[in-house]
Simulated scan of single mutants.
Amino acid sequence: MAQALETSAQPADSEQYLTFMQSGDMYAIPLLGVKEIIEYGGITPIPTLPQFIRGVINLRGRVVPVIDLGCRFGKTEREVTRRTCIIIVEVGSGEENQDMGVIVDSVSAVIDIPMVNIQPPPAFGAKIRVDFIQGMWKSDDRFVIVMDIDRVLSVDEITHLTEVLQESVA
């Protein structure tokens, strides 16, 4: 007698997230937006860009901008270690999608987070801009910051910041 196969090990009311460490804090981004994780290296710096834009990489013939997430959050540049890596994510919506690289200290795991367990972002006291936070999830002994990656890597905002910086240099 044939048995029905379970098509998904993930509960219907949860979503998969990639967790990573940055400046001693744990963050999570939706796994659906993650294209790949690559070793740190091969970044070509571009002059006159904001400090958090480290440069670009050649990813199989495509030019992909690389953002230092720690610098984007207003922290100082951190030392690159053997666990430092670049997460390639797709940001934007509709036809305007853009691949971007995000430098993080280390990647932790892929986890299922029940949606009912994600709390709203704090109104104050966060180490990063509140609009970058989609919510907070309490893991065993720590909070995981669930990021709104489209806001953190907003192509429009980054373009605007770059234009402002280039005008001030000129």
Rank of each mutant, 00 (worst) to 15 (best):
D68Y: 07
G42W: 06
D148F: 00
L5M: 04
R83C: 14
N97R: 15
P30T: 12
P11T: 05
P11E: 10
E15P: 01
L165F: 10
V104L: 06
E95H: 07
R82I: 03
V56K: 03
L18E: 05
D141E: 12
P47I: 14
R142W: 13
G92A: 15
G125R: 13
K75G: 00
M136N: 15
R83M: 01
N97H: 13
K75D: 02
I88T: 08
L59C: 04
R78F: 15
E96P: 11
V66A: 06
F143V: 14
M26T: 09
R62T: 09
I86R: 02
R83P: 04
Q119H: 15
V146P: 03
M21V: 12
M26G: 07
E167W: 11
V91M: 12
Y17N: 06
E90G: 12
K75R: 05
T44F: 05
S23T: 11
I113T: 05
M136H: 11
S14V: 00
A9K: 03
G41Y: 02
V89A: 10
R54Q: 15
D68M: 15
D13S: 10
I67W: 10
G61P: 01
I113K: 08
D150W: 13
E39L: 05
V56M: 00
Q16R: 08
G92M: 08
T81K: 06
M147K: 02
I103C: 07
I158P: 07
Q16A: 13
V89I: 06
R62A: 08
G101Y: 04
S168C: 09
V152M: 05
R83F: 05
V110I: 04
I57W: 04
T81L: 01
R83Q: 10
A12N: 05
V144H: 02
H160E: 06
A2P: 08
L165A: 12
P121V: 03
G42M: 08
A123D: 14
I158W: 01
G41H: 01
A2M: 10
Y27I: 05
T84C: 11
V80D: 10
F143G: 15
L165Q: 15
G92C: 14
G94D: 02
D131L: 11
L153M: 09
